[in-house]
Amino acid sequence: MRVNFTVNGPPQEADDVWEGESLLYVLRERMGLPGSKNACEQGECGSCTVRLDGVPVCACLVAAGQVEGRDVVTVEGLADFAKQREEHGGCASAGSGARGASGAPEASGTPGTSLDEARGWAAKGTDSGTGEGDELSPIQQAFIDAGAVQCGFCTPGLLVTADEMLERNPSPSDADIREALSGNLCRCTGYEKILDAVRLAAARQSEAV
């Protein structure tokens, strides 16, 4: 079958798709977008998280045919997506797609992390890293700065999830962060640096406003 949908903005057409293929397979093997990861392919690990019409979903659990006419954002498009959101006053959308179904931003139980605290967690790195000149979204930059990336296999899914959470809840408590990221498994970090990264991104975001 043929599937038409947008990926990170422009419309795409996938041909010869077998009906049993997942969105994840189509992205990775047919569209040349392997950033969404295939760690469990059973909806347990969150490594393949993408946004489908703005809602974070496990791409492995979405049949390719289900995305017909819809808008997909993957980690490859996250920087552009975040930039667009910033330019449109904090209200990004994936093409014409509707916003997430989660409704109003949640109130957080405890206040978010202050920028000073978050700075304390940021690495005192002096390297600019590779891909100099690559424009990164704030959450991507924070993951690098805070040391939240080790093997990196969980990273794309966590970035998409965390970015969506910060969109809904710009000053999350630690408990909010843990709850929002609880569907994304990481085997390397013990999550501490991932928490640091999200706190850092939130703090930088609040400073920028």
């Binding site: 690495a123 890293g129 991507q140 993951f143």
Partner: peptide, 13 residues
């Protein structure tokens, strides 16, 4: 605490 040389590649997919 220099940052990972593969960090950018890993966060961009």
């Amino acid at each position: 605490s220099t940052l990972r040389p593969d960090g950018t590649l890993k966060v961009t997919g």
